[in-house]
Nucleic acid binder design. Structure first.
Lengths: 111, 111
DNA sequence: AGGTCACTTTAGTCTTCACTTGACTTTTCG
DNA sequence: CGAAAAGTCAAGTGAAGACTAAAGTGACCT
């Protein structure tokens, strides 16, 4: 089974600007915890906590190389988010389709 | 110009489970504030505040009909979110392409 | 008019959570 | 070995924000 994350976990993780900045940075390529911390103006400890949240949401994977922890973007989390969004849109369209059908049966009308 | 919302505003709005529940409900069709409040187990005032946040993020539109406020899903916000996600993925792929190119030039290698 | 319904507003409470500090571990290098 | 670099852990602090109660507004009904 493909490792999935609950939409809730993913959106909770993305609901913080610092974590979104981390994801944006990692979409450009792997980075160490310190490299992530540098432009953010927060401590290493803070970044580490964010990375852990992102890992739980499967938005990030990490791997320890020597004394450095290398962080990478994980597509799984983004895929979970995209799927949730598309589901909301699909429902919406289904609804609009039904509406169009009713209006079609009753003759031309504007909302 | 098409009305757009900043990704930050949208993800901040979706970073709350109650608001996600509201969006999920509205993707099934329009609803009044009370109809939204009912299954959530929170007060009307709380829902109203959530709806206002969702409006700012362009995830929801509302319209007052008599004494009832009708809430509807707004695609704009979802579109903003989807675009942000796709950008992150596009960057990621671009990165992987560059990597593949380098590996290709240097002969077959595993990471 | 008077009452009820569906919000709306305000002010305050309470919890969550981002962030920090400081101590500690592990790895690297001269 | 011994010091610096990179990260880790555990409390503790503070501010944002989710929620509530209560009073107020406007629409609808009889």
């Amino acid at each position: 089974m493909l490792q999935r994350s609950a939409p809730g976990t993913v959106f909770d993780a993305l609901g913080d600007s610092t974590r979104r900045a981390i994801v944006e940075r990692l979409s450009l390529g792997p980075a160490s915890v310190s490299a992530l911390a540098d432009p953010l103006g927060v401590t290493l400890a803070a970044v580490l906590q964010h990375v852990q949240v992102l890992e739980r949401a499967r938005l990030v994977t990490t791997e320890k190389q020597g004394r450095v922890r290398v962080c990478r973007l994980d597509e799984s989390g983004l895929e979970t988010a995209r799927r949730w969004i598309d589901e909301r849109r699909r429902e919406q369209e289904r609804k609009l389709d039904r509406l169009a059908q009713v209006l079609g049966e009753e003759g031309s009308r504007e909302e």
